[in-house]
Design a protein around this nucleic acid. Sequence first.
RNA 1: GGAGAGAUGGCCGAGAGGCUGAAGGCGCUCCCCUGCUAAGGGAGUAUGGGGUUUAUAGCUCCAUCGAGGGUUCGAAUCCCUCUCUCUCCGCCA
Length: 414
Amino acid sequence: MLDPKLIRNELDAVAKKLARRNFQLDVETLEKLENQRKALQVKTQELQNERNSRSKAIGQAKAKGEDIQPLLDEVTQLGESLKQSETELNQLHTELEAILLGLPNILDDEVPDGLDEDSNVEISRWGEPPEFDFEVKDHVDLGAPNDWLDFEAASKITGSRFVVMRDAMAKLHRALIQFMLDVHTNEHGYTEVYVPFMVNSDSLLGTGQLPKFEEDLFKIDSEHGYYLIPTAEVPVTNLARNEILSAKQVPAKFVCHTPCFRSEAGSYGKDTRGLIRQHQFEKVELVQMVRAEDSADAHEALTQHAETILQKLELPYRKVILCAGDTGFSSTKTYDLEVWLPGQGKYREISSCSNFQDFQARRMKARWRNPDTGKPELLHTINGSGLAVGRTLVAIIENYQQADGSPPLCSFPA
RNA sequence: GGAGAGAUGGCCGAGAGGCUGAAGGCGCUCCCCUGCUAAGGGAGUAUGGGGUUUAUAGCUCCAUCGAGGGUUCGAAUCCCUCUCUCUCCGCCA
């Protein structure tokens, strides 16, 4: 959520910045509602003030044994107009809140212009795509022998966009998770957490998946109305929801392995083959909660931590900065790490590292207490995949494939 | 699944329609005293929002005692719904 004060005081500037995302802010409506809110809130609070002081007077008169009936008669009108005023104010607040929750974050100035991924800008490359002197296979073909990767079984059990892994493939998959967790906890100073894989709607509101992107989520059809998590970002970041962290708890750095569940609504026909786009996949997620002044550096560092995994696995990748149109709703600035996939002959996203600044923190009231002022301040949140495990698996078996068509399942140093 | 008990500030814990944003204690901060330490004395110590202000400070108002409704001139306190926690029984990994 954007700072309501910023919206009040610099509405046109905000509108101009949001326009970079191709988002059209309804300045007129917002201005009108805001003016109404202000007038109504002042009026309501005046009425509340009057009610409070009169009620107090009644209490004091009663305590002295005086006749309170005349005082009671005076306030009969008050209740009605106060109630009406409060109801109207509540409606206005709800309306304004709905608009505010639907506004995307303001982009960092460094984010390049552009409508879609074609305008993303490459920042760096690491490693060289391998040369093969035989015909390259993709991971689906490489995983077919011994039913290592069995998409048919999964579609029988559940449906499309699921997989069954067997034997060495399942082990390699598990080993990758372990490897990533170990690197981030041992070398990068993250604390491992284990969290629920289902969350309530407040949590999704906090990180920004709700209210706008409900169709991307799996909702559990039960009395609780829980959702399956689309990323560990949701439960982990929400650890700080409605909290005021002490100065020594900041920066908070968490690494968390979870399955992720995405409906992939709207991506029909996209990446239908293989592991690239599944309804269920494993991810090791990095989350940091830091002081405002530290978030830019922390974002760079976190991205580096994700890159370390690719480098240790010796997988060629490139780093891009997402353009305005491709940057996610809650993010001010996002780096994508794209790994080379020989099966596709191109770089594909394997990690997305974003700085949300105070956007999520404001939604979820995640704060820390600054000892210099003694006052709570909003945290800045940063997260990124470190890495998407399924896609890492794809990258390994494709980049390290052998001439005889076998994946390198025996050579991984797990 | 059945039966009970509970939810109050950083923590413990009073409060049972009015003078309670909330006693008391602990903790924490600052000051005083004591040559260190221990002990003692004093003051302060929730969060969010509005108005005023160029903005801060300040001043002032409003809201918040698990959440949401209701009763009342007035609700932490009474009523309803929900959530969560704990205890016992059953079941289960």
